[in-house]
Amino acid sequence: MTGEVDMSTADALFRAATPDGVHCATLDLSAVTFFDSAAIHAVIRLADRYPGALEVRPSPQVLRVLEISGLAGQPWLKPPS
């Protein structure tokens, strides 16, 4: 994903990450510049769908939103090194 993930694009993100027959997902959000509560909800839904099999690679902006939301310690979050 690139640009903004918000209430108008969060469902598209979820659908793109959940095609039939898929049992894991990696979300490359390293080029995302805006991330709102709808986007957070989509990621949480994906974590529920792929327990132990989701990896999220955030941009600094996404990481900050997840930190503020209390989600920085989630095992699916792979902060930039």
Rank of each mutant, 00 (worst) to 15 (best):
C24P: 09
D28R: 01
A72F: 08
S59R: 02
G52M: 10
V65Q: 00
V62H: 01
I40H: 05
V56N: 06
S37V: 12
G73M: 14
S59A: 04
F35A: 04
A47N: 13
S30H: 03
L27T: 04
D36C: 01
P58C: 03
A25N: 12
L71A: 09
V32G: 00
L71Y: 11
P51D: 12
C24Q: 15
F35T: 02
L54Q: 12
D36N: 05
A53P: 08
T33E: 14
S37M: 07
H23A: 15
P58E: 02
H41D: 13
R45H: 12
L77N: 08
R57F: 03
P79W: 10
D36Q: 04
I68N: 06
V43W: 07
C24T: 15
S69N: 06
I44H: 12
E55N: 11
R49M: 09
A72G: 15
T26F: 06
A53R: 15
A42F: 07
L27N: 05
L77V: 10
L63P: 00
V65C: 02
G52A: 10
P60N: 04
P79V: 12
T26A: 12
Q74Y: 09
Y50W: 13
A72V: 09
A72E: 09
P51M: 10
P51F: 10
F34C: 04
L46Y: 11
A72R: 13
S69C: 05
F34Q: 07
P80W: 12
I68Q: 07
L29V: 01
V32F: 01
S37R: 08
A31C: 05
V65N: 00
D48M: 10
I40G: 04
H41M: 09
Y50K: 11
Q61Y: 05
R57A: 08
D28K: 02
R45M: 10
A53S: 15
R49Y: 09
V65T: 10
I40F: 05
R45P: 09
A38L: 03
V32D: 01
P51K: 11
E67S: 07
D36T: 02
P79L: 11
S30K: 02
D28E: 03
S30Q: 05
E67I: 06
L71M: 13
I44S: 07
C24S: 15
E55S: 14
P80F: 12
Y50I: 14
P58L: 03
R49L: 14
F34H: 07
E55T: 14
V62R: 00
